[in-house]
């Protein structure tokens, strides 16, 4: 694997949203290059457009202007089917709002990662339990997700994302609700996966975590800047 090959490139990407008072530009023209094997951190004040940027990076939305290039393919030239395929196997995201199915158990929530994949149920189960163990949730496997604490919910969401690791994982404040011990556990997991070839893009408010990362950018007012 060539480590210098970019897995994700953003070229003059802009994102605006229509509002009742006219379109609002949330992302200013932004360039970003994430190389395969990178562990990139983005910090920045609330409302600066980090989640918006991650949605673009995770192929969950399309830019208003500019180009998002994933693995050499310009996303704007690709159709729905291509996006679906990539979301299944290549890009994953840990959502800021967890997005758990509240009535299903912890294990079922993690198994949901495999819902749209051709998979062997036994292997999916093994992988899901493994991911939950890595998050320290082995005792909560059969508990309905709605009864979890928010820190636990956050770890279930992470377990779901890493049960079948994609090539490129985008994590939106994955440790925002976690205590120190759990935070380190999660970061160790990410670090290990990164060493195994996973490319990471992490948004965080926790300066301490920057030690884990190979690169650090700051998002301010919808634009990315080098730190310091």
């Amino acid at each position: 694997m060539n480590a210098s090959l970019p897995i994700l490139e953003m070229k003059a990407v802009e994102k605006s949203f229509p509002t009742p008072t006219g379109p609002v530009r949330v992302l200013q023209p932004t360039d970003l290059e994430v190389k395969a094997g990178d562990f990139l951190a983005i910090t920045g004040p609330s409302g600066s457009g980090k989640t918006t940027l991650l949605m673009l990076a995770a192929l969950l939305s399309r830019p208003s202007k500019g180009a998002v290039v994933f693995d050499g393919d310009d996303v704007s030239s690709k159709d729905e089917a291509w996006l679906c395929r990539h979301r299944k196997y290549r890009v994953g995201m840990v959502f800021q709002k967890f997005c758990l199915l509240p009535h299903r158990t912890v294990l079922e929530n993690v198994l949901f990662r495999f819902r749209y994949l051709d998979h062997d149920p036994d292997e999916a189960r093994t992988r899901s339990l493994e991911a939950l163990r890595a998050m320290g949730l082995e005792s909560k496997v059969d508990q309905p997700a709605r009864l979890l604490s928010s820190g636990e919910m956050q770890r279930v969401a992470i377990a779901r994302a890493v049960a079948l690791p994609p090539r490129f994982l985008v994590a939106d404040e994955p440790t925002g609700n976690l205590d120190r011990e759990s935070t380190l556990r999660v970061m160790d997991c990410f670090k290990r996966l990164n060493a195994e070839g996973l490319t990471m893009l992490l948004v965080t408010h926790n300066e301490e975590l920057l030690n884990y990362c190979s690169r650090h950018l700051v998002c301010r007012g919808g634009a990315l800047q080098k730190s310091k």
Partner: peptide, 16 residues
């Protein structure tokens, strides 16, 4: 809606 978003993020197509 949230569940629909999750499904789409995990690879479900519009048709699904």
């Amino acid at each position: 809606v949230l569940e629909i978003g999750l499904r789409r993020a995990l690879g479900a197509s519009r048709k699904d």
